[in-house]
Amino acid sequence: MIELRDVAFAYEDAPAFTLAHLDLDVAAGTIMGIVGASGSGKTTLAKIIAGFIPSTEGGTYRGTASVAGAVLSEGTLTEAVDVVGLVTQNPFNQISGARFTVREELAFGLENRSVERSQMIERVDAVADTLGLTALLDRSPYALSGGQMQLVAIASMVVMAPPVLVLDEPTSQLDPAGTRLVYDVLARLSEGGTTVVIIEHKTELLHEHCDAISVLASGRIVSTGTPATVFADDRLSTWGVGQTRITQAAREARARGLLPVTALLPVGVSDGAAVFAENGAAR
């Protein structure tokens, strides 16, 4: 679905390339998690996948990025946004400012795509329901808390039902319950065939929900694979990515000879429980 081939990008006047020699493949209907330290180029990558770079950003762009078979840099931005929905980092700046209620805010993108009114009402109600926003529909978007704004920003893109959804740290202001809600929605979308790319620091959640993980370090993809293999990789912290406490504990147990060296390091609670229970922890 998403194919990046030898992509490189340097911002105007920047001394170095933010991304270089970047290859990335995301299969249709899967969830890909992108992890990496601050400044590794994650946001730039998101903008490339969504077609905003190079079309709205000056600088040096090389390589090809294609989504659903179309090379983004050869088409218009409108064509790109019909295929890829982008949720950016700061929820405050995703409020259109042109609409006075959350309901109208959610409908904004559909209006721009000339969706018929009856269908619009149906879709707005449905997305508000899945993201728990129904009670807020008549409020002003500016009267929301940061977490609520973040949910509205996600909903306003989900409602447009793009085949590909790219989210840049979408849960930074959400509590664990709100974060789970977002991941549940993404899981459902992916079951329905949507391809999802999510940039995130929360390793445990990515492990639970992603089909694949790519690690970005200094503008290059340094590792790609299943969450279980990528997150158990010993080099993870050298790339500035955190291992879960369970992985850290299992590593230490292995070093202390308490777990067999052959055991794959667990990442989450259920695989952690399996590994430790198998080796005599349960009581």
Partner: peptide
Amino acid sequence: AVEPPQLARLARVL
């Protein structure tokens, strides 16, 4: 509705 830390959840499951 507070989720305990990861190791606490693991200890509980175990």
